[in-house]
Each structure stands twice: as C-alpha cells, then as structure tokens.
Amino acid sequence: MKDTTIEPVRHTPDAPARRDCLRCKAPFDSSGFGERICRRCKLSSTWRTSPQRGAVGAPGRRR
C-alpha cells in the first residue's frame, strides 16, 4: 500500500531581508514581511499626508 502521509506546510519565519520598495522599486533593508515601503518613501509628504486605508475615521468608498 502507498504511503499517503501529508507533511505539514512549514512557513518561513519573518526575517530581515533586502526587499524592493513597493512604491519606488528601490532595494532597501527591510526588518520583516510587514515592512515593504522604504524609509525615503515613508518620509515623503505624499506618504505622510495620505489617509491610511482601513484607519478609523479615514474616508473611503461606501457601497
């Protein structure tokens, strides 16, 4: 009989890595999965003044 044991999926731990910024595409040293925008872009006035998606009180589309 054939072995049908299913191995559990092992997730990669959150780790610092060199990633490309999602805004300007420049490589930067990220501290983990959640950091995808480089410091330069985060310091821009556009980034700092835009409402955060899902933030309490942030304007958004209503359906």
Rank of each mutant, 00 (worst) to 15 (best):
Q52F: 09
T4R: 14
V56E: 09
H11M: 06
V56F: 08
R53G: 14
R48C: 03
A55H: 09
C41F: 02
C24T: 11
R62C: 10
E7N: 13
V9F: 01
L43K: 13
E35C: 04
A17Y: 03
P16C: 08
G34V: 01
L22E: 10
K2A: 15
R36T: 12
D20A: 15
R40V: 14
P51V: 07
T4I: 11
T46Y: 07
T12K: 13
R36P: 01
V9A: 02
R53N: 14
K42A: 08
P59K: 15
L22S: 11
P51K: 09
G34H: 02
C38E: 00
Q52I: 05
C24N: 04
P13C: 00
P16S: 15
S30C: 04
T49H: 13
R62H: 11
A58H: 04
F28C: 01
F33C: 05
D3Y: 05
T46E: 15
P51M: 08
R39Q: 14
R48I: 07
G32F: 00
C24E: 08
F28T: 00
T49N: 15
G34R: 01
E35L: 04
G54Q: 05
K25S: 14
P16Y: 03
A26P: 00
R62A: 12
S45A: 14
S31R: 12
D29N: 11
Q52P: 03
P16A: 15
K42C: 11
A58W: 04
A58S: 15
W47G: 06
D20M: 07
A55M: 11
F28M: 04
E35D: 13
V9E: 00
V9D: 00
G57Q: 06
R19V: 04
K42M: 13
T46G: 14
K42F: 00
L43S: 13
R48Y: 05
R18M: 09
D14N: 12
L43I: 06
G34Q: 03
A17F: 02
M1Q: 12
S31E: 09
R23G: 00
A58G: 07
P16H: 06
T5I: 09
C21Q: 00
F33M: 08
K2M: 10
S50H: 10
C38V: 01
S30N: 03
R40I: 11
A55R: 14
T4W: 08
A26D: 09
R36K: 14
D3N: 15
A26S: 13
D3F: 05
P8N: 12
P13M: 01
C24M: 05
A17V: 04
F33K: 04
D20T: 08
A15E: 10
T46M: 08
R40M: 10
D14G: 03
T4S: 12
L22W: 05
F33P: 01
C41A: 06
R19F: 00
D29V: 03
V56G: 00
K25D: 11
A17E: 10
I6Q: 07
L22A: 13
A17Q: 14
T5D: 04
S44R: 06
P27V: 07
C41I: 06
T5A: 10
C41M: 06
G34S: 04
R61T: 09
G60E: 10
C41G: 01
P8D: 14
L22C: 09
A55W: 08
P51F: 09
V56C: 00
P16K: 08
A15N: 09
M1W: 10
S31H: 10
V9Q: 01
S45I: 12
K2T: 12
G54C: 05
P16Q: 07
T4A: 11
H11N: 08
